[in-house]
Amino acid sequence: MLLSAALLAGAGCARFDSAQSQPFTTEPQLAPGPTSTPPPPPPLPAKPFPKECPAPGVMQGCLESTSGLIMLPDSQSALVAERTTGAVKQVSVRAEPIQKMMIPVDGSGDGGLMDIVLSPTYTQDRLMYAYISTPTDNRVVRIAEGDPPKPILTGIPKGATGNTGSLIFTSPTTLVVQTGDAGNPAQAADPGSMAGKMLRIEQPTTVNQAPTTTALSGLGPGGGMCIDPSDESLYVTDRTPTADRLQRITKDSQVSTVWTWPDRPGVAGCAALDGTVLLNLVNTKQTVAVRMAPETGAVTGDPEVVRQDQHGHAWALEVSPDGNVWGGTVNKTSGDAMKLDDVVFPLFPQGGGFPRANDEKT
């Protein structure tokens, strides 16, 4: 397959952590996902659309540093969030970008517009949820296009650093929020603090919101979350003072550490399918694949580097409906941006889609 040419040597800086599984605080209700599909066609058209920003080999360039990324049903367009500006833009391989909304945020430090997610019933309600920083806190807001953001969950601790987090719907009615430790790891262990937690919001609403429940504690700054639709496992990445890590929460509510990186390469967004988790390592400009045996869930080998340096520092990873994988870069805030950064790019520009199992690579 064409994919094999893109695969590089394994990441030697990682180590397996055999931490024992721990019970999940409350059982997650994970939404079923699509089944595996044949490899999709290449994600980019043979003749690029003549854009004002001529960044080559990408969906869109000339963005500010990105955060949340949502692939749209046509697999050729996306909603992308700019962390420092609060802008949400619709980008496409065949059209100029359109700014859909501007969310007021405090983009200082590592805060700002940190993630976006669509309502599970978006086609009916047209609602989006965002995880943002204000001058006083981090919070979750709900946005209807054309209306100001309305708070869903406020008072999440904010620090000079340690604010990054993520959002994911694990069922049609359950929104999970990954919060950073606000630069104070002690808060992550404090049951009275919302910092460094995975918080569950049931039936998110702007009026009389039910109290959140804590699904997981002790998290460092995110990171990201992703669900493997093949077995409904939820994966979360975070950065602790001693190591970066990838954790797994199974359908039967068991929590385990899948892998740790003592050299702390900057774990970020992830995408999962059929026992393989792709995740971005921001500091080392890599995307790696962590593969697990379907029978046991045990890691089958060192993380495999599937992207090295191309497009630079990447944060978000998303799978489009056709099975291709897309990323968003953070080069402007990482300090070594090129002229046409930042970009939304295909992880495998020749096509082939999500790399799932070792025996599929020929």
Rank of each mutant, 00 (worst) to 15 (best):
M59V: 14
Q60H: 06
C62R: 10
E64W: 05
L69E: 02
L69S: 02
L69P: 05
I70A: 01
P73K: 15
S75L: 06
Q76L: 05
S77P: 03
S77E: 04
A78M: 03
L79K: 00
V80M: 05
T84Y: 03
T84P: 00
A87C: 15
V88R: 06
Q90M: 14
Q90D: 03
P97E: 02
P97H: 07
I98A: 07
I98S: 06
K100S: 07
I103A: 02
G107D: 08
S108D: 15
S108M: 08
G112C: 12
M114L: 14
D115W: 01
I116Y: 09
V117I: 10
L118P: 04
L118I: 07
S119M: 03
S119H: 08
S119F: 10
P120Y: 07
P120Q: 14
Q124L: 11
D125P: 06
R126Y: 14
L127Y: 03
Y129S: 02
Y129R: 01
Y131F: 15
Y131T: 13
N138H: 06
R139Y: 05
R139W: 02
V141P: 00
V141S: 03
V141C: 04
V141Y: 00
I143G: 00
A144F: 06
A144P: 01
E145R: 12
E145K: 09
D147T: 11
P148F: 04
P151T: 02
I152G: 01
I152C: 00
L153M: 12
T154V: 11
T154H: 01
G155Q: 03
K158T: 01
G159F: 08
A160N: 10
A160W: 05
T161H: 04
T161I: 13
G162Q: 01
N163V: 11
N163C: 05
G165D: 05
L167I: 09
L167S: 03
L167P: 07
I168N: 07
T170V: 15
S171N: 05
T174M: 11
L175Y: 08
V176Y: 04
V176C: 03
V177M: 03
V177T: 06
Q178Y: 02
G180T: 10
G183L: 13
N184F: 13
N184C: 13
P185G: 14
P185W: 14
A186S: 15
